[in-house]
Design a protein around this nucleic acid. Structure first.
Length: 460
RNA sequence: GGCGCGGUGGCAGAGUGGUUAUGCAGCGGACUGCAACUCCGUGUACGCCGGUUCGAUUCCGACCCGCGCCUCCA
């Protein structure tokens, strides 16, 4: 039995898919006007692990993650760059796919782009206008009437009166209520636009997700996820649109990832602590970044710092050390470790608890090898790789992980030659020379691991 | 001001009404030519004050502190 924390009910609930054995899940993806940052990575990895685990538990998961490829920021950035907006979005979508591949994130089942669903969007707006939940304003925009939906605020636990009184919402003459939000934006002269019953324009952000999820997954589906800052207003608005258009429940379980902070401060462009994934990959291997993200619970707030990443690197290294030189056995039956791993993951995807099991397996492997029990060691290695795959970790060949070229001046051949020279020196008991070679390698970031079978190396 | 989340050992980070989280770092030992890796052992915890209880870090209440959202944002 899997239990999942539902933002809507604010508690963990036993997960019951609408259709037995099948999970229909929608996650809000990026607006593609720039490279993915750490916050995107967190959501990408969190829902990747969730998908992997649900599949491991036997569910057929239909995972839809959209791409917002038309919006104010995209148009603004394209204009700054002097390029077509579609060239910008095509470039950023390609970059996003590269980034997520390096993070070990599996592709979603479907990845709809807003501009491919204009017809569905227009149809949904039309439905809302006809039923009195939306109205065309004098300025050519179409707005959703928040007051037409009594349950507005049920996800974010906000009261409409408070929102209106807050007065931080966009004050727009054309709106009937300050909390109303735009469904269709009238095009300014020269702007890219699509035809509609209310004139040429483009969709508002919130309606895209309602229309695409409706089309790809149906009117009611199991899980809807996204970043923490999407809870309000984006997801609240999606609920209002979808439930008014369809007349019944939109989503059963709402899931939100925790926020990323940087050196204990909010990540923001004005603070200058905004990291893209590719910047971080210049300093740390992608799998280390993934390990860092997975090592704490998906709903908790995590703090990015050099120290935390360095520690993640050391810890992941320990895990790969356990696998080094072993050929995982085939067809290893389920063990107590598998059971404990599942127990942690069943409890709202407790990856931190699950990783503790990985360490227990690694410890067992190391004990077996130390005692010369090779068969048991390779059996447990199979368990470690198997459990690792559910978290999207430990799938590389250990040597590839250890020896990935980070732009060092030494090639693998250089290093092998120096290790041979050191081995010769040790054989003739010239320890001064042997240590000199070891120190030289260490200075250049290469760490040696001696064992009975010989010397192996890794880049530190 | 409104809504919500959290305060665990040097650090990161799970969890539990009474019993070892785990990792990193530290210390002692084994292994080693010396180290590293690995193994064994080891110390330091549950913001504060009340309450419930045989017993609370774990439940309840107050307080203090931190954080997020309330505007585009993953």
């Amino acid at each position: 039995m899997i239990r999942i924390y539902n933002t809507l009910s604010q508690q963990k609930e036993e997960f019951q898919p609408i259709e037995p054995g099948k999970v229909r899940m929608y996650v809000c993806g990026m607006t593609v006007y720039d490279y993915c940052h750490l916050g995107h990575a967190r959501v990408l990895v969190a829902f990747d692990v969730i998908t992997r685990y649900l599949r491991h538990r036997g569910y057929d998961v239909h995972y839809v993650r959209n791409i917002t490829d038309i919006d104010d920021k995209i148009l603004q950035r394209a204009e700054e760059n002097g390029e077509k907006f579609s060239d910008l979005t095509a470039r950023m979508i390609k970059a996003m796919h590269e980034d997520e591949a390096r993070l070990g994130v599996l592709s979603p089942t479907e990845e709809p782009c807003a501009t491919d669903y204009i017809n569905e969007i227009v149809a949904m707006i039309h439905k809302l206008v006809s039923s009195g939940h939306a109205y065309a304003a004098d300025n050519g925009d179409v707005y959703f009437s928040v007051e037409s939906y009594p349950e507005y605020g049920k996800l974010s636990k906000k009261k409409l009166e408070d929102l209106v009184a807050g007065a931080r919402v966009d004050v727009q003459e054309a709106k009937r209520s300050p909390a109303d939000f735009v469904l269709w934006k009238a095009a300014k002269p020269g702007e890219v636009s699509w035809p509609s019953p209310w004139g040429d324009g483009r969709p508002g952000w919130h309606i895209e997700c309602s229309a695409m999820s409706n089309r790809c997954l149906g009117e009611t589906f199991d899980i809807h996820g996204g970043g923490p800052d999407l809870l309000f207003p984006h997801h609240e608005n999606e609920i209002a649109q979808s439930e008014c258009a369809n007349g019944h429940t939109f989503v059963n379980t709402w899931m939100h990832a925790g926020a990323i902070r940087v050196n204990k401060e909010k990540m923001s462009k004005s603070l200058g602590n905004f990291f893209t994934i590719r910047e971080i990959f210049e300093k740390y291997p992608p799998e280390v970044v993934r390990y860092f993200l997975v090592s704490s619970h998906y709903r908790s707030q995590v703090d990015y710092s050099e120290d935390n990443l360095a520690e993640a690197g050391r810890t992941l290294t320990r895990l790969y050390h356990a696998l080094r030189g072993l050929v995982p056995a085939k067809d290893v039956p389920e063990t107590e470790h598998d059971r404990r791993f599942a127990e942690a993951m069943d409890d709202d995807f407790n990856t931190a608890g699950a990783i503790a099991v990985l360490h227990a397996v690694a410890n067992e492997i190391n004990q077996h090898r130390r005692e010369g029990r090779d068969e048991q060691a390779s059996e447990q290695a199979a368990v470690l790789v198997r459990l690792g795959s559910i978290l999207g970790l430990l799938q590389q060949d250990p040597e590839s992980f250890f020896q990935a070229d980070t732009g060092s001046e030494l090639s693998a051949d250089d290093i092998e030659a120096m290790i041979q020279a050191r081995a010769d020196a040790r054989k003739r008991k010239d320890f001064a020379e042997a240590d000199r070679i070891r120190d030289e390698l260490a200075e250049k970031g290469v760490i040696l691991d001696d064992s009975r079978e010989g010397t192996s190396w890794r880049r530190g």
